[in-house]
Design a protein around this nucleic acid. Structure first.
Lengths: 94, 94
DNA sequence: TAGACACATCGAAATATTTCAATATATCTT
DNA sequence: AAGATATATTGAAATATTTCGATGTGTCTA
């Protein structure tokens, strides 16, 4: 599966915010899998704002969400991240 | 030289627009070096808009500008692009 | 089942980005 | 030097994004 311009644009936009970059770093630091509550604790933002940023990351395909009881678990989508960086490096997408 | 969060954010923002992605692709297709007039011809946007997008790419460090008479030549900054993709892949930046 | 807890959604305000007409600047040509 | 050409800047309107309080939804615990 290879990414098109619209997807590259969306992923880039998702990466174009310091709060979201921090969230991704947090998840990566936790071995690619982090919980919403942890992310909220590390963030200076209000809960709905964090929720919004997580949604943007999900819609870009950078993370996947999974419910565990009343908690949300977020997993880094390494495949998408790799496809993104690969496509951007070569500027190879339609 | 390695990129920090602010720089990653800025580059991502610059990449988060279809018009700018097209511009970069055009320059890449031309061997990493393209002219303003060409870029304007290929773009559906008005001249000031193209000029604006080029400025965003320059400020992100993705391209460098050089004057040739009354024309502007834009060169892809492969080093920055590579540092960006590398940092994003590893989510490794401060 | 009532209350607590975790998270999502809505709606509105604040801020940022995109776009273009008008105009400025710099360089080339005649 | 005057006009033409190439690009940049300004200022304003349209649009998108960010943020948060209030509230909704689903799940756990007592």
């Amino acid at each position: 599966m290879s990414l098109n311009t619209k997807q590259i644009e969306k992923i880039s936009k998702a990466l174009g915010d310091a709060n979201r970059l921090k969230i991704l770093q947090h998840i990566a630091k936790k071995g690619g899998c982090g919980f919403c509550s942890e992310i909220q604790e590390e963030s200076p933002l209000a809960q709905p704002s964090v929720s919004h940023h997580l949604k943007v990351l999900i819609e870009a395909g950078l993370i996947d969400a999974e419910k565990e009881g009343r908690n949300q678990k977020y997993t880094l989508n390494d495949a998408v991240l790799k496809e993104y960086t690969s496509a951007v490096t070569m500027l190879n997408f339609a």
